[in-house]
């Protein structure tokens, strides 16, 4: 509740309208891109957005260092970041829900369970529901639009445990959540060099995760025949892990920015919101991965 009489209201700014221009350009450009009309407009929009974000964030950092943001303004930032992460939770929730719905309800129905089985059997005679789905309904009637994979990403058995990449990625990401916490702890005690060290390790772990995921995707596409178009298993697998990977990329980049700020001598024992917000984001990405590991890999 407000007790400060001088809440910081920034002066008129050119940044928001330019950001809106960038997003509008990107929406147009992305639409053109998927319609095979080139990616030039999208690239221009992306460049404007990057430039605006750079200036916008540096403005906020400068305002903070100039002491214009009192504790009440910082509470607004805390609420802002928290609810942004909540919205991201809901974004992943819809993809997880799609997975659960298909696995537990609609796929068994396609396989003939339930009271619509007669009709289903007429449309896809002989289709067997299983998970991971290796043979699509289309294939049992001779279609070639969705060709199932020859192998899936599920648990390969105890003998191959240590060659199972998702396990390594789980270990990497869980470790990175701990190291980012160590960095936080160090900054709270004003230990700058330790902060930089632990944060650098976290960034490195994030990067290693992405490399491992790249290797895994490459294997899937080249050796396992598992692609975006290999039916609902490939669809849910790549969309869930892909969006997560995209968030890891973003999170790693954000941590990297915080690392640069650390080297530049930003932050203090009780002034580190930029870093804290990033670390919340990182923990969130970590929790999503645990969900993926359990529901997409172990039980997949």
């Amino acid at each position: 509740m407000s007790t400060d009489s001088n809440y910081y209201v920034p002066e008129p700014s050119k940044l928001p309208v330019l950001m809106a221009l960038a997003l509008g350009t990107m929406a147009l450009g992305a639409g053109m891109w998927v319609r095979d009309e080139g990616f030039g407009v999208l690239a221009v929009g992306f460049l404007i957005m990057s430039a605006v974000m750079y200036v916008w964030f540096s403005t906020v950092i400068k305002e903070n260092m100039a002491g214009m943001t009192n504790p009440q303004v910082k509470r607004s930032f805390v609420w802002g970041m928290s609810w942004f992460i909540f919205s991201e939770v809901m974004f992943f929730a819809v993809f997880f829900s799609a997975l659960f719905y298909i696995r537990t309800l609609s796929l068994p129905w396609l396989g003939g369970e339930g009271d619509k089985s007669d009709m289903i059997n007429l449309v896809w005679p002989g289709f067997q529901a299983e998970w991971p789905l290796m043979v699509n309904p289309d294939q049992v009637v001779g279609g070639e639009k969705f060709i199932g994979p020859h192998e899936n990403m599920g648990f390969p058995g105890w003998g191959k445990l240590f060659g199972w990449l998702p396990l390594w990625n789980t270990i990497i990401l869980l470790t990175s959540s701990v190291t980012v916490h160590f960095a936080h702890h160090a900054m709270k005690h004003n230990n700058r060099s330790k902060f930089n060290l632990w944060l650098a390790i976290t960034v490195l772990l994030g990067a290693i995760f992405l490399v491992v995921q790249y290797v895994e995707y490459h294997e899937a596409y080249v050796e396992m025949g598992l692609t975006l178009s290999s039916g609902i298993y490939g669809t849910t697998f790549f969309m869930l892990t892909g969006f997560h990977g995209f968030h890891v990329t973003l999170g790693t980049f954000m941590l990297f920015v915080q690392l640069i700020r650390g080297f530049k001598g930003h932050f203090g024992a009780d002034d580190q919101f930029g870093f804290e917000a990033t670390s919340w984001y990182w923990h969130f990405v970590d929790v999503v991965w645990l969900g993926l590991f359990i529901f997409v890999y172990v039980l997949g």
């Binding site: 799609a98 298909i102 796929l107 396609l110 699509n136 309904p137 969705f146 975006l228 178009s229 609902i232």
Partner: peptide
């Protein structure tokens, strides 16, 4: 999901690939 189904070959809403329009 629509975007992916239209342009990138996924089958969220296509029963031929194991998806479901009701989803």
């Amino acid at each position: 999901m629509m975007l992916m189904d239209i342009n990138f070959g996924t089958s969220f809403f296509d029963a031929a690939g194991g998806g479901d329009p009701v989803l």
